[in-house]
């Protein structure tokens, strides 16, 4: 009961923050924006519909997806330090986008550049699956180590590319390293939701297989499924989900690692499905609040979102750890 009350209270606070996000932020807007007829063409009206709403949808989707992937990896690898970026998929996307920007001159927010990012990610996913099925990588520890290796390799390549650029004015490519919430239109927000929502739903629907995996391979087999097939299936799904959000925002740290742990500490969910669902909700709200704060600390400045998520989440996580 106490846990439920605590969780409810936390959720209420986060929803209040969400309201503040819509009407506060770097430029606060009043409710009159929606009532007065003369306001329908005002700057506030445009800020609300052109900037705030698409951005909110984007951060909710990205935050939720990252927390969900983090939660899934922690179960899949049986490793509490697993985060969404552990397999190197996101660094491959980042490398693809930077390659497209530097060598092809395509802006990294263009569909063409995202296609290159997706291509790089697919290569890594296929490599991962190939090694997983044919080269004795079925030990999950090895999969993680393989991912760490890929991560180092691609990150180094990324740094080399960035340092080889003409630094007359610095480089916009650096944003991929720290995460960035770009401006997107409403239709693009819906397109992202249309891509990520089915993947998220499938991950949750088949969540019972994750429960089986968490009890060990022998138990999983007695429950009637092949644990390696489930792992392969989840590796593909989570990689696709991660690729679709990283293409837009780069690597936003901390959410995928810490939100599932916080959910475990506060709610102690009994199944993977519940864990992933609550992680999605809290990851989404956590990123939305972090985004609002990043733009409200010292307007008109906007701080890198990854920095805010870490600053906010770190103390919260340590507090929860201390209390439990």
């Amino acid at each position: 009961m106490k846990r439920l009350f605590g969780g409810g209270l936390l959720l209420t606070v986060l929803f209040i923050c969400l309201g503040l996000l819509l009407f506060g932020g770097a430029q606060a807007i009043s409710f009159d924006t929606f009532t007065a007829e003369s306001m329908t063409n005002s700057a506030d009206h445009r800020i609300f519909w052109l900037l705030k709403i698409p951005r909110l949808l984007l951060v909710l989707t990205v935050g939720g997806a990252l927390a969900m992937v983090g939660g899934t990896y922690q179960i899949l690898f049986n490793n509490s330090l697993a985060d969404p970026y552990i397999l190197g998929v996101s660094s491959s996307v980042t490398l693809g986008l930077v390659v497209a920007e530097i060598f092809l001159g395509w802006p990294s927010n263009s569909i063409k550049a995202m296609g290159i990012g997706l291509g790089f990610a697919l290569i890594v996913i296929l490599l991962l699956l190939f090694c997983f099925y044919f080269h004795k990588l079925q030990n999950m520890e090895r999969v993680v180590l393989f991912g760490v290796g890929i991560n180092f390799l691609f990150s180094s390549a990324l740094f080399i590319l960035i340092s080889l650029q003409n630094h007359t004015l610095g480089s916009g490519s650096m944003r991929w390293l720290f995460g960035n919430i770009p401006w997107i239109e409403l239709k693009e927000s819906f397109a992202l939701i249309a891509i990520t929502a089915p993947i998220g739903i499938i991950i949750v629907i088949f969540g019972r297989y994750l429960d089986g995996l968490s009890l060990g391979d022998t138990v999983a087999r007695t429950l009637g499924f092949n644990p390696n097939h489930v792992r392969g299936f989840y590796l593909v799904l989570t990689s696709l989900l991660l690729t679709s959000v990283t293409c837009l925002t780069g690597s936003i740290g901390f959410i995928g690692l810490v939100v599932p742990h916080c959910v475990r500490l506060v709610f102690a969910p009994r199944s993977s499905r519940v864990l992933l669902l609550i992680s999605f909700v809290f990851g989404a709200l956590f990123l939305a609040v972090s985004d609002t704060i990043s733009r409200s600390i010292l307007p008109p400045l906007e701080f890198p979102i990854g920095m805010v998520t870490t600053l906010l989440g770190g103390p919260l996580f340590l507090y929860l750890l201390w209390k439990r």
Partner: peptide
């Protein structure tokens, strides 16, 4: 703002539009 010391500040789009 001229008090802003940063040479190349990243600014919020909302402020920009306003």
């Amino acid at each position: 703002n001229s008090n802003l010391q940063a040479a190349y500040p990243q600014v919020s789009l909302e402020w920009f539009v306003k």
